[in-house]
Nucleic acid binder design. Structure first.
Lengths: 138, 138
DNA sequence: ATCGTTTTGGCACTTTGGTATGAGTCCCAC
DNA sequence: GTGGGACTCATACCAAAGTGCCAAAACGAT
């Protein structure tokens, strides 16, 4: 939002500058009218591209953002979410147990609960559903 | 590529038109010089935005684009790739067998070969690696 | 301090996944 | 027409994943 304001301010300022320049060009007759117009064209092309870059960056961030609210809505606890992340990295229950310093039984319990909460039959399906729900980076 | 050519053609044409207009404005003195400049500014702003929209669309397509060459490099066959896609959708071997109209044994063979070729220990890891290698939509 | 949730874990059991091996069919290239 | 690759399938076996049930410890809020 703040950036949009900044962009429009810059736009207005450059407009004013260009009006001044165009008057100056008019005074010194026809030597540079094409150059002025070219400059204007380039400047506004760049401005257009700049605005575009901003919006595409926003899109990127949106597609990566994780919906923490949805995690809570699904009743997925903090620890369960950690397990979910490790599952999506392709780790086995034993490996997850080792990285989280708990027993494999515990991981199995967490996984079982995750499958229930995500309405999935397998861990691979859980990964897919979690990404659809934007609770895992796509 | 074709669209880029189109955009640049439009850009050059509009430039020529604007030069003509600017000369006309010069002949009819200073009544419309600001208007001409405004028009130029708006036109090129729009062109910039248009190019931006295109490039952001391209970015989207790029992030989704699949590296078919890499699939071949890894020696993954057509059928194996089909199985890989179904794995990433979260299907079980039996379900994949049903959707591809073959036996579960066949799918097991394909999966085993896939794990070898992707250097993965589990199907979840295969999904992860395949996405890293851009042979599956991220 | 007590209640509810989370986290942890064990055990027995079933299901699914993955390996190894071997083999038959099909098709394409040389 | 022969060899090689891709696709198919089976069997046997082991590993991993997942279920059900239970229960204790830890934690957080009122």
């Amino acid at each position: 939002m703040k950036r949009t304001v900044f962009v429009f301010s810059a736009l207005i300022v450059s407009l004013l500058i260009l009006f001044q320049l165009s008057k100056y060009a008019y005074v010194s007759n026809d030597i540079s009218i094409e150059i002025i117009i070219s400059v204007i064209a380039i400047v506004f092309l760049v401005i257009g591209l700049y605005i575009n870059r901003k919006s595409s960056k926003n899109q990127k961030h949106l597609s990566i953002a994780i919906d923490h609210k949805k995690v809570k809505q699904l009743g997925i606890s903090k620890r369960e979410y950690e397990v979910l992340v490790q599952i999506s990295r392709g780790l086995s229950n034993k490996e997850i147990a080792d990285t989280l310093f708990v027993s494999e039984s515990t991981i199995k319990t967490h996984v079982s609960n995750l499958l229930l909460k995500l309405d999935a039959k397998r861990r691979t399906q859980a990964i897919q559903k979690a990404k659809d729900l934007q609770i895992l980076p796509v």
